[in-house]
């Protein structure tokens, strides 16, 4: 038990765990957040647009992906993306994709659905008068969206977006099912190699816990400040 807890294993593994594992996890989190926000905002604008076709397509996509487990979606895209790339590039066989980029694409497309719902509710919670006021000033719909609506909606939604990013950070651990070496993957590899499951999994849990806890406390503090500004 705790007397047999081998800290030495952890110390030796630290460079691999953080330089290889955690850097993958954090880069993936960052890229997927940025990509997911951009695509998610696009989806939200499509869902709210007056164009029936656009809103049905965006709505169907978001609802479909939100109904599926992330693990299944990871498998889907892992196999689908090479075929899509083949189709896009006109290559003769499915294109082999680097596991990192495959993960970035998967998480971007998946998390965009959750960001979409956040942005959508942010836009919808703005008083209707804001759109009217922008139109009254002679702005086009697009100008109103970019200069009046989105800046306000995004600021109101910032705490929710950051909370979703923390969830995304935790979700990235699921790339384990593709045997990718993210932080958890690195810990699992050493755990199995050295037969040190206890040490490595507990250490992984502690690291995830500390990062998520600090981040969520920071978001909570920010939330209070945003509330005051409003």
């Amino acid at each position: 038990m705790l007397s047999g807890f081998d800290f030495q294993t952890i110390v030796h593994a630290l460079p691999y765990l953080f330089l290889t594992g955690m850097s993958f996890t954090l880069t993936l989190t960052l890229c997927a957040t940025i990509g997911g926000m951009i695509f998610g905002t696009l989806l939200a604008v499509m869902r709210l647009s007056d164009n029936r076709i656009l809103s049905v397509i965006a709505g169907g996509y978001v609802n479909l992906l939100r109904s599926l487990p992330l693990v299944l979606v990871i498998f889907w895209f892992y196999f689908l993306v090479p075929f899509l790339a083949q189709w896009l590039t006109g290559s003769s066989s499915p294109v082999r994709i680097d596991p990192f980029w495959s993960s970035v694409i998967t998480f971007t497309l998946f998390e965009a659905c959750y960001f979409c719902e956040i942005v959508r509710s942010g836009i919808q919670s703005l008083p209707r008068g804001q759109t009217l006021a922008a139109s009254a000033l002679g702005m086009t719909d697009r100008q109103a969206l970019f200069y009046v609506i989105l800046p306000q909606a995004l600021r109101n939604m910032l705490p929710l977006i950051l909370t979703q990013t923390i969830i995304l950070f935790q979700d990235t651990s699921l790339v384990y099912v593709l045997s990718i070496t993210d932080f958890l993957g690195a810990a699992a590899k050493i755990a199995q190699r050295d037969g040190r499951l206890l040490e490595m999994y507990v250490f992984a849990a502690v690291v995830y816990f500390i990062i998520s806890l600090i981040a969520s406390q920071a978001v909570r503090r920010l939330q209070k400040r945003v509330a005051i500004i409003r």
């Binding site: 384990y176 999994y201 849990a205 995830y208």
Partner: peptide, 9 residues
Amino acid sequence: NIPLLVQMF
């Protein structure tokens, strides 16, 4: 604050 997969392990 601990990922579900890690909790599973």
